[in-house]
Amino acid sequence: MPASRPITLAALKALDPRHPGIDLMTGRTPLFACRADQRFSYCLYVPRDLDTTRPHPLVVTVHGTERDATGYRDAFAALADTHQCVILAPLFPAAIGDPEDIDNYKLIDYRGIRFDQLLLEMTAEAALRWPIATDSFFLHGFSGGGQFALRFLYLHPDRLAGASIGAPGRVTLLDPTAAWPQGTSDLPDRFGTEVRPDALSSVPVQLLIGELDNQPHPLTPLNRTESMLLLRDNLLAHGLAPVLDVVPGAAHDGDALVPAAAEFLARLLPRPGGPVPDRPGTAAP
């Protein structure tokens, strides 16, 4: 990934209300190329009545393998309007470096690209323009995005105020005997960090799955429901208190899981108009 360079962006609060860019920088924004690596981009949903004089909570939503970043952002727009938060959705295109690749971002590192660092670059860049708090933000991902969200949680628990992990096909367990991505034995060599149980246990975690999401998965002997139950038991054994939410009648359908994810996030978000705490709330076991 190219080295970061100083960025000069016009902050939303500095623009005249009559500026033509206001319509593009609030509501459903276009996709913006990430200055750290312009092969990747992100879009936002910014409530048009957002108070630009103070920072607001940030919710990051990560797409699945189909890469519908804008659609997944739009699914959480009502949450943003109600709770005065901002939605950021990264776009990690398929076929980066390999025309046959569709999985790159899910395992965090791929051909020298660190997708976790890319997301942090995007949030830092967005904070130069929009009034968002990025030291601690909320993360939700579905399917491939659920894989990313889980692994990002392991690497950066100090950056998360809450994590909603939706229906990952393959899970990484807190397992010191297995290498990434099955386990975490090689985190120091691969990522330069250790598993931090105390930090992980302070992050509210939702495990989210459809009741009917039980079809065989081609890359693992377990289906998604079996993988989620295995993950839940593993996290519990390491001192975390994940909430397992099963959506009745839903199969592998990100849209069907959005209401449950939004409800989980709404419980953690601060009251509209209130301060943005480092750890805004805790999840019930």
Rank of each mutant, 00 (worst) to 15 (best):
D253V: 05
R39P: 06
A266Q: 13
L230N: 10
H252K: 10
N214G: 07
Q215P: 00
P90N: 03
A149R: 13
I96Y: 08
R67G: 08
E263M: 03
L118G: 08
L9S: 13
R5V: 09
P248A: 11
I113H: 05
A241R: 01
S185W: 00
A250K: 04
S143V: 06
F142S: 11
F115Y: 15
F264C: 01
L44R: 05
L44K: 01
P55L: 07
H238T: 14
L187S: 10
Q38G: 04
P218K: 03
A178Y: 05
Q117P: 00
A237W: 04
R111Q: 04
L240E: 10
L44M: 08
P280N: 09
L12S: 08
P216Q: 07
P30F: 07
D255P: 07
A10D: 08
P270D: 02
D278F: 00
L120D: 02
V258A: 05
P57I: 10
L268T: 04
L173H: 04
S202T: 14
S164L: 03
M25F: 12
L58E: 06
L269G: 02
D37C: 12
T52N: 11
D198R: 14
R170G: 05
F76S: 03
P218I: 13
G144E: 06
A36F: 02
Y45C: 00
R129L: 03
L9G: 06
G166K: 08
Y105Q: 04
P47R: 14
R267K: 15
P216T: 15
H252N: 10
H83K: 12
I96W: 05
D186S: 12
L91R: 15
T29K: 01
T184I: 11
A163R: 11
V171T: 15
P248D: 07
E263Y: 08
D98T: 07
L128P: 01
G192N: 08
G97F: 06
Q182E: 15
L269F: 01
T184F: 11
A179G: 10
M25D: 14
E226H: 08
T26W: 02
A14Q: 14
A179W: 04
D51E: 15
H63M: 09
E121T: 03
R39S: 07
Q182K: 12
P270Q: 08
L160G: 00
A75C: 08
S201I: 03
Y45S: 01
T61I: 12
P20A: 11
Q215I: 06
L257F: 05
P197H: 12
P259Q: 11
L120E: 06
A133W: 00
T282C: 15
R39G: 00
T52R: 13
S136R: 07
G254E: 03
P168Y: 06
R232Y: 11
R232K: 12
D255T: 15
L207I: 13
P57L: 07
D116Q: 09
F92C: 01
P17C: 10
H19N: 15
L207Q: 06
T29I: 06
D103H: 09
L187R: 05
T8E: 13
F76W: 03
A95P: 01
R129K: 07
T220Y: 00
L236E: 14
I132M: 03
L244C: 11
D189Y: 02
A10Q: 02
G144I: 02
T29S: 14
